[in-house]
Each structure stands twice: as structure tokens, then as C-alpha cells.
Design a protein around this nucleic acid. Structure first.
Length: 931
DNA sequence: GACCTGCTGCGGCATG
């Protein structure tokens, strides 16, 4: 077959001793040479890159090439580096220039690319976005594009990054006027038609899908931890026992990689590394390097090593607890067995009995060739960004052209004219765009939101570079030792748990906390060699469990005891499964299925256990939480998993109550509980800047954001249709509710982390936390696990008149910190031992001026007073305040006007507490002046 | 105890 490649390529192959092409390379060659759009599906390590590259290089070498002929897009920076080197080996010998572009490419190299445009460019979706939007000069090279390769396309399906890239391809087509050839490389994925259509978009070239049959064979064992003692020791022992260097040990959390590393080290195991997203690039590279060179016995990792990074020859895969989906199972397993003739080989280690069920279900699904289909998404915030991108590119563009480019992509092919028009009007209202006749222009707000100098601007401003990426970030502290970056931890975890002097474990090493720089969000560490270090917990979003799993478990239960005959279960796993099933038999209960819900009332929670789509469980859980909160308001929590849901209410059957409600009311509760969930709030926050909305979202003005936020939230976390069907089936008796003792799957529900109440109930929580004291933002943040920044915003809102739970703040004269308390308790605090000094001026006879502005800002009043007058009778003094509510309160020193600047300001102050805050201000000023 | 991914170009100035 390699005869069809150009002579140059064939001789290069000989030079490399490539006598034989892999199956997928053979299969892909013809269609690519023919100019077809081609989707290549094969597991990692079967030479997909070369399958696409060699025929293209062959075509390239047969004619004259102007830069940029080939764009190679891949979602990871590490892959860009890797692939650039691989491509360059061939390209340089053919006289083609290759360059790479991503955020970490050194400036020198970036400049080189701009000076001498390459024939082949390797970049990220974001890199392409930057060039299209912003690289006014380099962009012209894109007019010559003939081929685009999208690598690891399965990673981009169903995500905003993917939607962004697929629109970019249409923009590229429109800009270049060329129907370039599109080639996609994907791991095994279901619904390949959808993937192909999404990639090929509006291209009119013939299409081909080639799929490798390789990688279907594998060896797997499912084991279970029998040990009833310490689970960590038992886990480490079983891992140690099954290591066959080099081994990759996959876990489902960053915490677990660190924790197991610690335990393995205790067992004397050497040459074990950790690899996850919160350790520095250097540590990760180090682990990869040791793995490739054979020095590492094992690497404990999360999904970071599931992706296409080259890890060399891995002998065995251990999955510590089952992976979340079949796709991820196959990807993980596929990281081994790349040795010639080798087949993937590994095992799943189960900790809980139900882990064995999941493991067996995943195995069984993979045997049947079933995989999770890619999700269809159609995010409007991405449309908004792409419109803005086109406006950066063209400065003025016809509305009609924008619409046709966007709807040319498969992702947005059903975007209606009306939706588009609504979006444009909304962007126009927020000054992100300007409409002039049928032309669209960039509005003034754009560079206010995406700014070049963030420090000079308001809190909503983002760095300009963030415009190009659709991945949002949470607050985190960077950990460093000297100049070296070690990793990062969630900001909230630092506030809550980390203090100077503490020992922590990260990156498989022990460290002592030297200093915490709050402003820079930085923690200084020094290496430590002895002691117990705390391992941080990163609170991210969970990996959603595949909905195929609960369905498959139900299928497994249908064959009953026979599942124990599966040869991939070792004795320990068989024992676990047997024990699990026997518990049902002994209680004379049918084995779990989606048509039975076991209801168990424990001392704290009512548990509803069944086999259910995780999103349906999550939706019902949120509805129960809504019902519970309307009566109990505080301390409500719930749990949701593929094994059911629970609520911490034990004296009522809330599920029964919910089911018996009228359809209309159920729908109302459903939407209200979603709109109230923190999940919705964070989605809203994530998308609002893309629409030009800054500040608080207004239900009347910002319907578009609310609607889109709701749509995205539901898509990601909830399942409305499934929930309504489930509730209906319960009502109709098609799903039975059976009261029982706690079942094994009921225990599985309880082992899930609780879901806490929604943010809007937070006012009550904060108010409650403040009761009986006065606290700084960081103290409250620790108590409630709320990030300080959002907490402060919340506290400031809670000062206002309209709030039921009203708070106020004063300066702690001793520590110079701002403390918050409830308005009603301020008077008590004034007389308390703890805060007495903050309200006791040193000189009661000094004269001050109180400047008071009304809430509307219309009137301004000055009041001259001496602290003594207040102390004599605060209530009487309050009568002299000319308004019920003071919008802004400031104190001046008539003698020393400079003091003005130091004077604390108070906002939204109720008349009766004004006297006390005046005492606080005078005490503070005098403290500054006299001590 | 709950994953991962990404992030200014261009032109003009000064300096060696």
C-alpha cells in the first residue's frame, strides 16, 4: 500500500526502518490521498498521527506549498510539543518548516513563527482562535490552508472547546475561501457518524470513516480488598502485590494518588511517582520521564495520563476503584500493551462491594462494544464569543455573513434566526456590539471586560488573554519552594486548613508551610523530612458516572448468581458480590432494579435506593431539598448517585409527597430547585461575561442569560425528562417503593458526599454563623467553607435595609481588622469584654464631625458631636440623626483633616446603631492618633 | 472525599 505514497516519503520510511504500516495507517491512506474528509478511529498508540500525516506529507511534497498548508490542532500543550518533534523529523527532510504555538512556547520561538511562517503549524483550539481574531498579519497565511488535522477529537466532543473549534473551522473556510480537507483522529467512540458530521461541518468533500479493530482484546482481572482493617494499608498492600513495573495506577481523585503514594512509601516501595493536574508541570514531566526511561516502578495518576501523552511502554494498568465510564475504562486500559504483539493488561481493584458491580458492568459493556455516546451541546456563550472574535477580525461584518458562518457548523446548524437576532440585540444592549444597518461592529464594553491591564480596572474585568479560552477557573493558591513551583491547592482549602508551620504532602513529598501570602495567592513551602503531612483535598466537580452503568448492573442482576461465574472476577471479588446479593436474599428482597425503590429511614436520613441515572437522582435530590428547606430551612443536605438518593429528613416521606403533587406543581418545584442550586449560579457566572453582562443578573433584563444558564445547567447536571418519567412511574405504581432495612446499595448512597444547600439560603447560614459574636471575613469563610471574596460580596449585600437578615461591620481597634456582626447584636458587643475597647474612645471630650449621606444620596448632613454625649445616652443621641437610614457614614476630625483618610466608612446603617459606630470610629481615630 | 484541558500580535522604540 505504501506504494501510493510519494517516492520521498517511501525512502524516508526506509530510512526509519518502517517496513510495515499499522492496520489503521493502511486503511487511512487511500481516502486521504483521494482528498476525502476522513475520521480515523483507533486506540492511542496505533499510529494515528502518522496515519494522517504521511499521506498529507506525500501530497504536500508533490506540489508547491505556501505557508500555512497544514494546521494540526490538538487539545494539549504537551501533545503539541510531542507531535511537533515527530512531524519535524519528516517535514525537515522534505524541506517544510514546522512550528508550534501555545501559551508556553518561549517568546523567541513565537517571534520566529511570525517572521517566517511555517508550512505546518501545530496548535490548540485557543491558538487558532487567537490567530483568527487577533493576529492581523499572520492570519493572511491561513488563506493557503489545504489540510486541517484535529487530534484527540473525542476530547472535544460535547464540550464548549469543541463547539468553539468547529465554528473556527467554518470561519477558516469562509476566510480562506477554500474547502480544505478535514481529518479527525479519535479514540474509540460511539456514534462515529455524529463525530464525523460535526468535524466535517459544511465541507462538501466526500467523507470516510476508518476504524481500527485493534485494541479490542485485553486481559483484565477484578479484585476486591478483603482486609477489614485500615483501608489505606490494605489498598497499598494489594497495589504493591500486583505491581509489575512499569505500572500505571489510575485513581479517580488527586487526593487518592497522594494518599496511596504515602502508604506505598510506608511499605518501603521505591520509585513511585504521582501525576495529576495540581502538581507543577516539572513534577509531571519528571514522572513521565521516569516512566519512559523505565526508572519508575509505578505512577499513581488521575485522568491526566488517560490522554494521549507518550508514556512509553507500560506493562500493566491498575485501576484503583472502577473508572466512571466505559470510554475511560478503555482509554486507561489502552495505555498498556503497546509493546509489539502485546495486548492491554490490567486489573480493577475494588474497595466497596458495589465497586465490584460497577467493575463487572463496565467490563460487560465493553465486551458488548457499548460506549457512552458524545453529548450534543449548543452553548450560546460560545456563539457570542465567536461573534466577538469575528468583530476583532473584521472590525465590521454583515450580520447575514455572521449568521451563515455560525450555522454552517454542525453544532449550530439549528440555531434559528430569531435566536440569533435575540442574541445580537442582547449583546447590543450590553454595548458589546453595535448594529449599523446590516453591519455589525465591536462595542465599547469589549475592552472594558477583556482588558490589557487588569489591575487598573473593576473587579469584573478579565485579562485579555482569557477571551480566547472557554475553560473557567476557580481560585487557587500556588505552592512554591524557593523559586520552584510545586503545585496548587484550592483557595478555600488554604483559608480553612493551612497555617504556617503545618506539614502537608503534595507531589509525593512532605513540606512545611513557611508563609502564606494572601494577596499574591501564594504559599511558601520548605522541604520536610519527617512527620505526618496533611494531604490537601481538591474540591472539584465529580466525574459524572456513565448512565450505562446502572442499566448494565440491572442486566447483571437479571442473571442472578450466574454473574459469579465470570472468569475475570478473582475469588475476593466473587466473595464481595456474593455477600452483596445474599443480603437481599436474606431479607427476602428482590435484587435491585430500576423498578423498585427501597426506602430506609436511618437515624439521620431517609434513603431511597434503586438503580437510576445519576442526573435523575440529582434532580430528585434537589427537589427533595427544596421541599425540606421550605419547612426546615437550615441544615438540609441530600445525596445522589447511581444507587439512589437520600435526604436528612426522617419524619416525613418527602418522595411520596412529591409524587402525589399535581404535574404542574412538580414542574414548578423542579425548575425552582434548579434555579436555586449553586450549580446554576456558577454556570451563570461562567457565561455572563461572554454576553457582556457585568454585576448582578437582573431577572427582568437578563432573561437571555438566565435561560441559557438554565439550559446549560440542566444539560450538565440534571435530567428533566427522566425525572418526570420516574416520578410518573412511581405515581402509577410501575416503580414500587418498598420499606426495608438498609440495603447494600442504600449503603452505597450513604457513602456519597452530601450535597449542601443552595447559595440563596446562604444569608441564613451567614446570619446564624455571626450570632453571638463578631468575626472577620476569613473567620466566617473558614466556618462556612465559602470563598472569602464571595462572602464579602454577600456580607455587603446583607447590610442593606431590604434584607431580613441584616448585618453590619465595625473596626476592631486592637487588631485593625473589620469585623462583622448582626445588627441586632451590636449593642451587646459594645458592652462585651471582648470588643469593649473598640467602642471606648480614649478622650471622650474630643470633638468630631459625622458626615451622613442618605441612601438615595440626595441629602448630606453633618453632625458635630463629642463621644461623651453618646456615652451618656445613646438612645437619646440617636434621635438627633436626621434620617432613619444612613447610606454612608464618615467621621472627620475637625482639627486634623488628614485623619479623614483613615476614618472608617460605614454603609447602610440603621439609625439606632449610628451612635455605636460613631463611638467605634472615634475610638479608632484616637487609637491611631495617640498610640 | 470529587477528573481534565487553555490563555495577546504588531510595530516602534532602544540597545549592543
Amino acid at each position: 500500500m505504501s506504494d501510493s505514497l510519494s517516492k520521498k516519503i517511501s525512502s524516508l520510511m526506509k530510512e526509519r526502518n518502517w517496513t510495515k504500516m499499522t492496520q489503521i495507517q493502511e486503511m487511512a491512506m487511500e481516502p486521504i490521498l483521494r482528498g476525502n474528509n476522513t475520521l480515523i478511529i483507533a486506540p492511542t498508540g496505533f499510529g494515528k498521527t502518522e496515519a494522517a500525516l504521511l499521506p498529507i506529507l506525500s501530497l504536500m511534497s508533490e506540489g508547491e506549498q505556501k505557508p500555512v498548508s497544514l494546521i494540526y490542532v490538538t487539545p494539549l500543550k504537551a501533545l503539541i510539543n510531542d507531535i511537533t518533534i515527530r512531524i519535524d523529523w519528516w517535514a525537515s527532510k522534505l524541506g517544510f518548516v514546522v512550528s508550534r504555538k501555545h501559551g508556553e512556547v518561549p517568546q523567541k520561538e513565537k517571534n520566529m513563527r511570525l517572521r517566517k511562517a511555517p508550512h505546518i503549524l501545530v496548535t490548540t483550539p485557543e491558538g487558532l482562535e487567537i490567530d483568527m481574531d487577533w493576529a492581523s498579519k499572520f492570519r493572511d497565511n491561513y488563506r493557503n490552508v489545504k489540510w486541517v488535522i484535529i487530534d484527540e477529537i473525542h476530547e472535544l466532543m460535547g464540550s464548549k472547546r469543541g463547539a468553539q473549534l468547529f465554528v473556527l473551522l467554518e470561519r477558516l473556510k469562509d476566510f480562506s475561501g477554500k474547502d480544505f480537507q478535514r481529518i479527525g483522529l479519535s479514540a474509540t467512540i460511539s456514534n462515529e457518524e455524529l463525530v464525523a458530521n460535526t468535524l466535517f461541518g459544511s465541507s462538501s468533500r466526500p467523507k470516510t470513516i476508518v476504524k481500527s479493530e485493534a485494541g479490542k482484546e485485553f486481559r483484565l482481572k477484578i479484585r476486591s480488598i478483603k482486609d477489614s482493617g485500615d483501608v489505606w494499608v490494605a489498598s497499598a498492600k494489594i497495589i504493591k502485590e500486583s505491581l509489575e513495573p512499569p505500572t500505571l495506577v489510575f485513581t479517580n481523585s488527586r487526593f487518592l494518588t497522594e494518599r496511596l503514594h504515602e502508604e506505598l512509601e510506608r511499605l518501603g516501595e521505591k520509585g513511585i511517582f504521582v501525576h495529576h493536574s495540581s502538581i507543577s508541570r516539572d513534577s509531571k514531566s519528571n514522572a513521565e520521564e521516569n516512566l519512559r526511561s523505565g526508572k519508575a516502578g509505578a505512577v499513581l495518576c488521575t485522568k491526566t495520563l488517560e490522554l494521549g501523552i507518550d508514556v512509553g511502554k507500560v506493562k500493566k494498568i491498575i485501576m484503583y476503584r472502577p473508572p466512571p465510564s466505559v470510554a475511560s475504562f478503555l482509554q486507561r486500559l489502552g495505555r498498556s500493551g503497546h509493546c509489539v504483539g502485546g495486548i492491554p493488561y490490567g486489573e480493577i481493584i475494588c474497595v466497596q462491594d458495589f465497586d465490584c458491580l460497577e467493575a463487572l458492568a463496565i467490563y460487560s459493556l465493553s465486551r458488548k462494544g457499548k460506549l457512552e455516546p458524545p453529548r450534543r451541546v449548543r452553548p450560546l456563550d460560545v456563539v457570542a464569543r465567536e461573534i466577538l472574535g469575528m468583530l476583532l477580525q473584521y472590525s465590521s461584518i454583515k450580520l447575514e455573513r455572521v449568521f451563515s458562518i455560525i450555522t454552517a457548523s454542525q453544532v449550530y446548524r439549528d440555531l434559528t434566526r430569531e435566536e440569533f437576532q435575540n442574541l445580537i440585540s442582547y449583546l447590543q444592549r450590553n454595548n458589546l456590539v453595535v448594529v449599523e444597518g446590516d453591519e455589525l461592529k465591536l462595542g465599547k464594553s469589549f475592552f472594558k471586560i477583556w482588558t490589557f491591564n487588569r489591575s487598573n480596572n473593576f473587579v469584573w474585568a478579565k485579562n485579555f488573554s482569557e477571551f480566547f479560552s472557554l475553560i473557567s477557573n476557580d481560585d487557587a493558591f500556588t505552592l512554591r519552594s524557593g523559586e520552584k513551583i510545586i503545585g496548587e491547592i484550592d483557595a478555600i482549602y488554604v483559608y480553612k486548613h493551612i497555617r504556617p508551620g503545618d506539614l502537608i504532602r503534595i507531589s509525593g513529598k512532605l513540606w512545611k508551610v513557611a508563609r502564606i501570602h494572601n494577596g499574591m495567592m501564594m504559599v511558601d513551602l520548605t522541604p520536610a523530612d519527617r512527620g505526618e503531612g496533611e494531604i490537601p483535598i481538591w474540591r472539584g466537580e465529580g466525574v459524572p458516572k456513565s448512565q450505562l452503568i446502572p442499566r448494565e448492573i440491572q442486566e447483571l442482576f437479571k442473571i442472578g448468581d450466574k454473574i459469579l461465574e465470570s472468569e475475570i472476577l478473582d475469588d475476593s471479588a466473587k466473595a464481595s458480590l456474593k455477600a452483596l446479593m445474599e443480603k437481599y436474599v436474606r431479607s427476602k428482597l428482590p435484587l435491585p432494579s430500576s423498578s423498585t425503590i427501597y426506602m430506609t429511614v436511618t437515624d439521620k436520613e431517609t434513603v431511597y435506593s434503586t438503580l437510576i441515572d445519576e442526573r435523575v437522582a440529582n434532580t430528585i435530590a434537589h427537589m427533595l431539598m427544596y421541599l425540606a428547606s421550605s419547612k426546615y430551612t437550615l441544615n438540609v443536605y441530600t445525596r445522589a448517585s447511581i444507587y439512589g438518593f437520600s435526604i436528612n429528613i426522617t419524619d416525613r416521606d418527602l418522595l411520596r409527597e412529591l409524587v402525589q403533587m399535581k404535574e404542574e406543581r412538580i414542574r414548578k418545584i423542579l425548575f425552582r430547585s434548579i434555579l436555586r442550586s449553586p450549580l446554576f449560579m456558577s454556570v451563570e457566572k461562567e457565561i455572563q461575561a461572554s454576553f457582556g453582562k457585568i454585576g448582578k443578573i437582573n431577572p427582568k433584563e437578563d432573561k437571555l442569560i438566565i435561560k441559557e444558564g438554565l439550559r446549560q445547567t440542566v444539560k450538565r447536571y440534571f435530567n428533566i425528562k427522566g425525572t418526570l418519567t420516574t416520578l410518573k412511574r412511581i405515581r402509577e405504581g410501575k416503580i414500587r417503593i418498598v420499606r426495608s432495612e438498609l440495603t447494600p446499595l442504600g449503603e452505597a448512597v450513604l457513602s456519597h458526599a452530601p450535597i449542601k444547600p443552595w447559595i440563596s439560603g446562604i444569608n441564613i447560614l451567614i446570619y446564624d454563623a455571626l450570632k453571638g459574636g463578631a468575626y472577620t471575613v476569613h473567620e466566617i469563610s473558614e466556618m462556612l467553607s465559602i470563598p472569602p471574596r464571595s462572602l464579602e460580596v454577600k456580607l455587603k449585600q446583607m447590610r442593606k435595609t431590604s434584607t431580613k437578615y441584616r448585618v453590619t461591620s465595625f473596626v476592631d481597634v486592637d487588631s485593625k481588622e473589620i469585623r462583622w456582626c448582626t445588627v441586632d447584636e451590636l449593642k451587646q458587643l459594645v458592652n462585651s469584654d471582648e470588643f469593649y475597647t473598640s467602642f471606648a474612645p480614649i478622650n471622650e471630650d474630643e470633638t468630631f464631625i459625622a458626615e451622613m449621606r442618605s441612601i438615595e444620596g440626595s441629602s448630606n448632613t453633618e453632625l458635630i458631636f463629642k463621644p461623651k454625649q453618646i456615652l451618656e445616652n445613646p438612645e437619646e443621641f440617636a434621635k438627633r440623626i436626621p434620617m432613619d437610614e444612613v447610606g454612608e457614614l464618615r467621621i472627620h476630625d475637625p482639627v486634623d483633616p488628614m485623619i479623614c483618610n483613615m476614618s472608617p466608612r460605614y454603609y447602610f446603617v440603621r439609625r439606632d446603631i449610628v451612635p455605636y459606630l460613631l463611638l467605634n470610629a472615634s475610638a479608632y481615630i484616637q487609637n491611631l492618633k495617640y498610640t
